Amino acid sequence: MTEKHNIFLIGPMGSGKSTIGRQLAQQLKMEFFDSDHEIEKRTGVDINWVFDLEGEKGFRERETKIINELIKKQGIVLATGGGAVKSKETRNYLSTRGIVVYLEATIETQLFRTKKDNKRPLLQTNKSTQEILENLAYERNHIYKEIADIIIHTDKQKSKIVTYQLIEILKKNNDCFNS
Rank of each mutant, 00 (worst) to 15 (best):
G58C: 09
W49E: 14
F51P: 01
R60M: 03
G58S: 09
E54Q: 14
R62W: 04
E63V: 05
V45C: 03
N48H: 10
L53H: 15
V50S: 01
G55D: 09
I66P: 03
V50F: 03
I67F: 05
E40T: 04
E56W: 05
I67W: 01
G44A: 11
I47N: 03
E61M: 13
E56Y: 09
L70G: 04
T64N: 08
R62L: 13
F51D: 00
E54N: 11
E54K: 12
K41S: 14
G58N: 11
G55T: 02
I47Y: 00
R42A: 05
R42D: 03
E69V: 07
T43V: 09
D52I: 04
D46Y: 06
L53S: 14
E56P: 08
R42Q: 14
N68V: 04
V50M: 00
L70S: 10
G58W: 03
D46K: 09
G55E: 07
N48R: 12
G55I: 02
G58T: 06
G55N: 10
K57V: 14
R60Q: 08
E56M: 09
R62H: 13
G58V: 06
D46G: 08
L53N: 14
W49I: 10
E69C: 12
K41P: 02
K65W: 11
F59N: 01
E61H: 11
F51L: 03
V45R: 01
N68F: 05
T43P: 04
D46W: 07
E61S: 14
E40Y: 03
R42F: 01
E61K: 15
D46P: 07
D46R: 08
V45D: 00
K65C: 09
R42C: 05
R60A: 04
E40G: 07
K57I: 14
E56D: 12
V45Q: 03
R60K: 08
K41W: 06
T43I: 06
V50Q: 00
K65N: 14
I66G: 05
K65E: 15
D46F: 09
E63L: 07
G55C: 11
D46M: 09
T64H: 06
I67M: 07
I67K: 05
K41G: 11
E63Q: 10
E63C: 06
E61D: 15
K57C: 12
L70Q: 07
I47D: 05
E40M: 08
N68L: 08
N68M: 10
D46A: 04
T43K: 10
L53K: 15
V45G: 02
I67N: 01
R60S: 02
E63Y: 08
F51A: 02
W49S: 09
T64D: 11
E63K: 07
V45N: 03
D46T: 05
V50A: 01
T64A: 15
E54D: 15
E56R: 06
D52W: 10
V50I: 13
R60Y: 01
